[in-house]
Design a protein around this nucleic acid. Structure first.
Lengths: 216, 216
DNA sequence: AGCGAACCGTACCGTACGGTACTGTGGATG
DNA sequence: CATCCACAGTACCGTACGGTACGGTTCGCT
């Protein structure tokens, strides 16, 4: 039998999605402080009563926003093509660039700031939600890529999670945190290409199976 | 009269430092939401009026808290001893462990959450303050270590900042962000040793001079 | 046309917070 | 002892927000 596409997700109506979109825009522009129920209602041309009817309370709205945003990221399945040393490198670099651009996105930054702000009090679940919906998805794509590279004899590692952790660190380092702290993300976005190349070169030197290191 | 030790820092009185300590404790326990002026005054047995007299307003209090906490981290100057491949590795592993433990500290986590939460609105300056006081200090220590390693012929790199960026990424990866998002820092703290060893091994494979495999 | 559900707009309530003003008090100084 | 000062404690004010209630309107259904 066929399972529902998103069993865990309430999957709101188009109207409600539009409201969530407005709420996200509001959050991006003004931070969490600007995300008031009255503000969302005004921006989305809906009533506060409807907000509470649809999302329960403010926390419900926040959770819905995260779920909504996560539902917009496409799975980006890598088709199983024949990997060579060159194509693997290309795929890795592409992955690195995509990852950096996702992390630098203003919506991503705003949601991460929101979840981090709520992480202090117990039982917020926003952090784990973002972790689950965000990083796990990205990690799955990277994991498949690494696995394919190993099957093709191009990569050598024992623990896939460990290799992915190294890959992630080489690509991102503390750049994500610095952007979260307010450093201008647009200014550093022009270095993403060079950074991705650098990180993948290092990763391949660490985990590549061929003897001589290759670089472009 | 004796000059102040830190010209850039207001350098508050002992009483005010005690108040800042109470405020930090409050922030660690309950997050930013719990850090109210009335709460700080109650916890520190002082009056709100004194708080405003000493720190101006709430933002001044937050800045003072960051400055106060930063003033407590010691510079940790590495003495210029003769580096060998073994001692360099030991120093790097020690640095990695220290870095991880600092990042996992509850005060550090709370302050980073605070700064990130304030980063959305313009002109907060808290993020850059934390960046300046925190990472720059750590980076200076690491930079000196890397430089010493290069002078001793044990490391090979052109750009010190780039090498440090790689080192940082290998050590921390997304662990800092995950802790900021609420993941239990205590549970993962027991892996810091293994993680530090792993990261330094990888770093030395990338930048070590004893074997081949070096290029720009 | 009649009806009811969904919903918008707004007014309202309780609360909590940032910031200010006032009063009392202990302690130093002359 | 008289004076001054820094401070604690508290009461107070304006505001803003989360959440609720209610009247009016649209729209689909019978």
């Amino acid at each position: 039998m066929q399972l529902a596409a998103h069993p865990h997700q309430p999957d709101y109506s188009p109207r409600q999605n539009a409201v969530l979109d407005c709420a996200l825009r509001l959050l991006v522009d003004g931070g969490e402080k600007a995300l008031t129920t009255a503000g969302v209602a005004r921006a989305a041309n809906c009533s506060k009563e409807s907000l509470y009817k649809w999302f329960g309370d403010r926390d419900g709205l926040l959770s819905a926003m995260i779920g909504f945003q996560a539902s917009k990221v496409r799975a980006f399945e890598d088709d199983a093509e024949i990997l060579t040393a060159v194509t693997l490198r290309e795929h890795l670099v592409l992955f690195a660039r995509d990852l950096l651009e996702v992390l630098a996105g203003d919506v991503s930054l705003a949601l991460n700031r929101l979840a981090i702000g709520q992480a202090s009090r117990e039982g917020s679940k926003l952090g784990s939600m973002l972790q689950e919906r965000g990083r796990r998805q990205v990690g799955k794509r990277a994991g498949a890529l690494l696995e394919a590279g190993r099957r093709a004899g191009l990569l050598a590692f024992d623990d896939r999670d460990e290799a992915y952790d190294t890959l992630y660190g080489l690509i991102v380092s503390d750049l994500h945190l610095r952007m979260l702290l307010g450093e201008d993300s647009g200014r550093m976005a022009k270095d993403f290409g060079r950074r991705a190349e650098r990180a993948i070169s290092a990763f391949l030197r660490l985990y590549g199976h061929q003897k001589g290191s290759v670089q472009s």
